[in-house]
């Protein structure tokens, strides 16, 4: 996994609450058995005017010019600013895969759905929760200043605004450690293999049926 240390870039404002994973990546694209290639279909139903199907040449599809990601000023954005309960709905990891494949490594919102939030970290992405009032300000700034950029310093847990002002954010210690070092958490868990075996031995004497073969 690629390390996440300091990220800087253009912010794209997606001014909607309750953006669900069906919107982030519609179901017809979940049929892929790969982890990559979902970026062109990120927000497919909002981004294009026609109905998207897997395997299309997306560069030839009619764009919905009213959708924020099609606005010239947000091209190349790598930070997504959005509203509460982002990523609700299905557990599909294709949602963070699509965001990441498009280029977003950071998502800032007042709140996230639990499973989506968790899935982000597994893919080297950082979801940042900020106060609703701060989010309102950021929306105002992003919309009024063309090319508005933010810097995220994960080690210091700071969002740094262009004028140097900072806003701090919370992040779980373990997840921060994994992101900063680009660690695969399966490897980390397997360092506890003896604990897992010990647990199994104890538990299988108490609830043997859980371990029955079928």
């Amino acid at each position: 996994m690629e390390k996440y240390v300091i990220e800087q870039g253009v912010v794209a404002p997606l001014d909607r609450a309750n953006v669900d994973t069906d919107q982030i990546i519609p179901k017809q694209f979940l049929k892929s058995i790969k982890r990559t290639g979902f970026g062109p279909n990120l927000f497919d139903e909002w981004r294009y005017l026609d109905e998207g199907e897997p395997g299309q040449d997306n560069s030839r599809r009619p764009l919905n010019q009213d959708f924020v990601l099609n606005d010239a000023r947000y091209q190349g954005a790598n930070i997504l600013l959005t509203r509460r309960n982002f990523g609700c709905g299905s557990s599909r990891e294709h949602a963070p895969w699509a965001l990441e494949d498009y280029g977003f490594r950071t998502i800032i919102a007042p709140s996230f759905a639990d499973i989506f939030f968790n899935n982000c970290f597994k893919n080297g992405m950082l979801p940042i929760v900020l106060d609703e009032a701060v989010i309102d300000e950021l929306f105002r700034d992003v919309k009024s200043v063309e090319g508005y950029q933010l810097t995220i310093d994960l080690a210091k847990q700071l969002v740094i605004r262009p004028n140097g002002e900072t806003v701090s954010f919370e992040v779980d210690e373990f997840r921060k450690h994994c992101l900063l070092n680009g660690l695969d958490d399966i490897g980390l868990t397997l360092q506890h293999a003896d604990d897992i075996r010990g647990y199994e031995a104890k538990r299988s004497s108490q609830e043997p049926w859980v371990f029955d073969a079928h």
């Binding site: 982890r35 990891e93 963070p96 597994k122």
Partner: peptide
């Protein structure tokens, strides 16, 4: 998520 499916399979 799918990364966790893999994690549970492996650990």
């Amino acid at each position: 998520g799918t990364s966790e499916v893999e994690h549970v399979l492996a650990t």
